[in-house]
Design a protein around this nucleic acid. Structure first.
Length: 933
RNA sequence: GGGCGUUUAACUCAGCGGGAGAGUGAGUCCUUCACACGGACUAAGUCGGGGGUUCAAUCCCCUCAACGCCCACCA
């Protein structure tokens, strides 16, 4: 009964993953000690919004972070990964309010602030725990003891402290300005929180009669705002209008008189008629124009997007859209509508609620951004924070150097209430850490500001508020600045910029030394994943698998714009559902897809299957090893005497193992996740499984009474176990579950720790680096491959042994290959005979390995002389092409004179090899002609 | 309008100054005692177009084109 028979042929993640999740948790391996003397390495997880559950983008970012954290932890650092969630003020509002309207036909105002907050907290609990659950399923080694929430007590303290200090420093102020008003969510949103959506609208041309005769024609996309017009602007240098500037026009539908002003900033001579209506209360550019020209400020649209007085009674109460229709009809009836043209324009919509933004002038709280941004710019210029990929730094710097003040107040409820109190008698506003009992100026009673803060205000403090700031904690001292921030490029302005500004301002240090920006995960067509498109893939569906039916069911729950199209796509792309992949396969796939440069990852289930297959391959390699390791004693392995026994295969694979260790470590230092993962992938497939496992087989047979063979067997067992054990350590940051499972099963020295995740990350051992073995092995591999090619070409079943002559005139090459004939025989399933000269053979197929080795396989009647001639002729043509290209290069005096000596030497060698090879191919062709005759 | 990115085998994508690579797919063969979520072999590329720098360019520079992203503006 071997061990392997106890392991199933297919790796089953659902059996393995829960066990190790529990084991790691119970042993508290994820916790970092504030007081540890080792080098700290800290990452703060970008806190997911408590709006729902994690999507594949989170899975990507967090996987990369866990790779870094586990790698650094194993490399001896005090690695700390801070978990937490974000209250996501407006995002939660939109969800809750939609739900409230659907289920109870109520607005949040019907419900009241207190009840609404209760529901928001309940929502937060549900969503937060679902997110934690997902993070645990993915195997993320987050330091759960430290878990935080942006609206927990300690965060509230930090937010208040930050606000009060900025206010006291004059960096937070109140001002009335044009802002973006979201009529659906009933709040201000910042300029970053709007989307430009292209829509087909109309451009209307309206004639405004001029007092004393004539008319002036203005063009507009928003005729309803004319009810609030307080002027008409023309360019002061426009010859068409020089004599009307200063005159009054009579505004149709209202009869109000408004002036014609000259304003070269607002009015462009070349656009339309060159005359533009000015509505200072409802357009940002008109607002500025109004200020410049002292025009009246006439508000005709209210906060709900409905018309109000002084618009004529007829329109009052209409929505903006209804009023637009009515105004157009009335203008037409009045005979002043001159033209209606279809017009494509971009409309600003609220990113969260989707409502059309109404520009309004309202008093709000602002952060003066320029002084904060200056410090961030200086820090980045000084290289204190680096961006990867590098070009993202330009994006950051461009925004930072053109930054506008940040509107931080929101008229929402779910969030941090602004720590400001208004006197009910006088104008005094008091900003304080604790609520004042009365007005400091007049002693009147006070009430707290109703507004809350933009959700990014608390996020901006996250790297240090989570470590205890404003207190001077040990954690802050140890883990701040963080080592790296891993996040998506879509939130550079929202979040990275704010953390840089706040971090530098409040702590005097950058919040992180490196910003690694991940790719955006898209669907297989390259479209961004979004719930409205219905192309979102849930990481859990990949982890555990999903049937087509369950995927289709989800569509209805998510309510995309076009459910039938989504279902059709699902039926096409996931006809058989999604198979269970396991966390390791998903993680490894994401790491391998994370290359620099390209900003997006087109997620394709096939690419994950590829990596699930890799995990399975590893699993089966282990089954093979465990079935052949009986009698192996790890404590008896590793001495110098053992190394004496190593054959070419052992020396070669151990040398390759050192190379892969170096490659992985180097790649991770450079955040080249895919390079690191690919190095392991290719080592496991191409070297360990394809070659070493096969080469080891003949030596692993049970031997009795032959101490020499028994010692060799033990050495081979040791190499096999070493390769696997080292591979598990290398791969562990990428695929923690399967590696822990395998590692625990492998025989190893008793002094090793109880879990793979706290072993030491592999470093190359130079004493095993063996270029000679690698070169020799290459020759053996090529010889075997050529034998297999010949057998394949003539349809010889791979398992059928055939005789083969290996003709090598070069004595050095011949003696190099001699010790490996057994390996060649075993691997290629041939019976080889070595000859020191080229010799003709009737009915034989021939092939070259490099310039020195010729494989001659007598296949009798199987050999088709026509086919064989064709093949060899093709080989000669290939050689000719090589020869002429290299010869041409070497023929140029400049090449020989100006390129490095080793390049010239290498070209000379290659030329000589190709020429020798060609000679022998020509010879082979001649022999074929003779032999076949 | 400004900025950035991408363009390499049928598909998805690595590579980025000195011999064109991977996975998938295709074809041929193999149910060989780790694995068919497997193995062996084969075919398949003017490395987007044009110009330049260099002894040498898929790689650097210029230019054009297509696609994509971000920012600004839009009476």
């Amino acid at each position: 009964m071997t061990t392997s028979s106890a392991l199933s042929k297919q790796y089953d993640p659902s059996d393995v993953e829960p066990r190790w999740r529990r084991f790691w948790q119970e042993n508290n391996y994820f916790h970092a000690d504030d007081a540890s003397p080792t080098i700290p390495y800290a990452i703060t997880l970008p806190p997911p919004n408590v709006t729902g559950s994690l999507h594949i983008g989170h899975a990507l970012g967090s996987t990369l972070q866990d790779i870094l954290i586990r790698w650094k932890r194993m490399s001896g650092s005090n690695a700390m990964w801070m978990p937490g969630t974000d209250h996501a003020s407006i995002a939660v509002h939109v969800l809750l309010e939609k739900e409230l309207m659907r289920a109870e036909k109520k607005t949040r105002f019907d419900l009241g602030r207190e009840e609404f907050m209760k529901r928001a907290w309940a929502w937060k609990e549900r969503s937060g725990s679902r997110i934690n659950e997902q993070e645990k399923l993915m195997g993320f080694s987050l330091d759960w003891e430290r878990e935080r929430f942006t609206m927990d007590e300690r965060s509230n303290v930090a937010v208040t402290e930050c606000f009060v200090r900025l206010y006291e420093e004059g960096l937070i102020y109140r001002a009335k300005r044009m802002i973006h008003w979201d009529t659906a969510s009933q709040t201000v949103v910042s300029d970053l929180e709007t989307d430009d959506v292209e829509e087909q609208r109309s451009l209307w041309e309206i004639a405004y009669p001029i007092e004393g005769g004539g008319e002036i024609i203005v063009a507009t996309t928003r005729p309803e705002t004319m009810l609030g017009d307080s002027g008409v602007a023309v360019h002061p240098d426009d010859p068409r209008y020089t004599d009307v500037i200063g005159k009054q026009v009579i505004l149709p539908l209202t009869g109000r008189k408004i002036p014609i002003v000259g304003d070269g900033i607002l009015a462009k001579m070349e656009f339309g008629t060159g005359a533009v209506k000015v509505t200072p209360a409802h357009d940002p550019n008109d607002y500025d124009c109004g200020q410049r020209n002292h025009l009246e400020f006439i508000q005709v649209i209210d906060l709900h997007g409905k018309m109000i007085a002084p618009a004529p009674d007829k329109y009052v109460g209409m929505t903006v859209v209804a009023a637009r229709k009515a105004v157009v009809a009335d203008l037409e009836a009045a005979g002043v509508l001159r033209d209606t043209k279809p017009y494509k324009m971009t409309v600003k919509r609220s990113q969260r609620s989707g409502a059309v933004i109404e520009p309004m002038a309202l008093e709000q709280w602002w952060v003066k951004a320029a002084p904060l941004a200056e410090k961030a710019v200086a820090a980045v210029e000084a290289g204190k924070t680096k961006f990867i990929p590098e070009h993202e730094q330009k994006t950051f710097m461009h925004w930072m150097t053109n930054i506008k003040d940040w509107c931080i107040s929101r008229q929402l409820w779910w969030g941090h209430r602004i720590p400001a109190w208004h006197c009910e008698k006088c104008e005094t506003i008091m900003v304080a850490r604790t609520a004042p009992s009365e007005c400091g100026t007049c002693g009147g009673s006070v009430h707290q500001d109703e507004d809350i803060l933009d959700t990014w205000f608390s996020s901006g403090l996250w790297p240090f508020s989570t470590l205890g700031w404003p207190e001077k904690t040990r954690a802050l001292q140890t883990f701040y600045p963080n080592s790296v921030l891993v996040t998506g490029p879509d939130i550079i302005f929202f979040w990275v910029a704010r953390m840089m500004m706040f971090g530098l301002h409040f702590t005097g240090k950058v919040p992180f030394k490196t910003v690694y920006l991940t790719s955006i995960v898209t669907d297989e067509t390259g479209a961004k994943m979004s719930k409205t498109k219905g192309n979102v893939i849930d990481p859990l569906q990949i982890l555990s698998g999903a049937t087509l039916d369950s995927l289709l069911e989800r569509v209805d729950a998510e309510k995309p714009l076009d459910p039938e199209a989504v279902k059709k796509a699902l039926r096409k792309n996931f006809a058989n559902g999604i198979p269970q992949m396991g966390a390791d396969a998903l993680r490894f796939a994401l790491a391998r897809l994370s290359t620099s440069g390209a900003g997006r990852i087109k997620l394709n289930v096939d690419r994950i299957v590829e990596n699930r297959n890799f995990i399975n391959k590893l699993w089966n390699a282990t089954r093979f090893a465990l079935g052949n390791l009986d009698g192996f004693d790890p404590e008896r392995f590793g001495g110098a005497a053992q190394r004496e026994l190593f054959g070419i295969g052992e020396r070669w694979i151990l040398s390759r193992l050192q190379a892969v260790c170096t490659a992985v470590d180097t790649a991770l230092e450079a955040f080249a996740f895919s390079e690191a993962a690919n190095a392991i992938y290719h080592f496991v497939y191409d070297e360990l499984c394809d070659w070493y496992l096969e080469l080891s087989k003949p030596h692993l047979a049970q031997v009795e009474g032959d101490p020499v063979k028994a010692a060799l067997r033990h050495a081979v067992q040791g190499v096999l176990a070493t390769c696997l054990e080292t591979t598990m350590r290398l791969l562990h940051p990428f695929a923690p579950f399967v590696t822990e499972e395998i590692w625990q099963k492998l025989p190893k020295k008793p002094e090793l720790p109880g879990s793979l995740m706290i072993t030491v990350f592999p470093r190359a051992d130079q004493t095993f680096v063996d270029p000679e073995a690698e070169a020799e092995m290459q020759l053996v591999q090529d010889t075997i491959t050529r034998c297999l090619m010949l057998k394949g070409t003539y349809g010889v079943p791979p398992a059928q042994k055939v005789e083969v002559e290996i003709q090598i005139p070069n004595p050095a090459v011949r003696s190099a290959i001699t010790p490996h004939l057994a390996a060649i025989a075993y691997r290629a399933k041939v019976t080889p005979a070595l000859r020191s000269e080229t010799a003709p053979m009737a009915g034989a197929a021939r092939a070259m390995v490099g310039a020195d080795v010729e494989i001659v396989m007598p296949l009798g009647g199987l050999v088709d002389p026509v086919k064989e001639t064709e093949r060899i002729t093709k080989d000669i043509a290939r050689a000719d092409k090589e020869i002429s290209s290299i010869a041409a290069r070497l023929g140029k005096p400049d090449f020989v004179a100006r390129s490095p000596a080793d390049v010239v030497a290498e070209n000379r060698t290659r030329l000589a090899d190709e020429q020798a090879r060609r000679e022998r191919l020509v010879e082979a062709l001649a022999i074929l002609g003779g032999g076949a005759a």
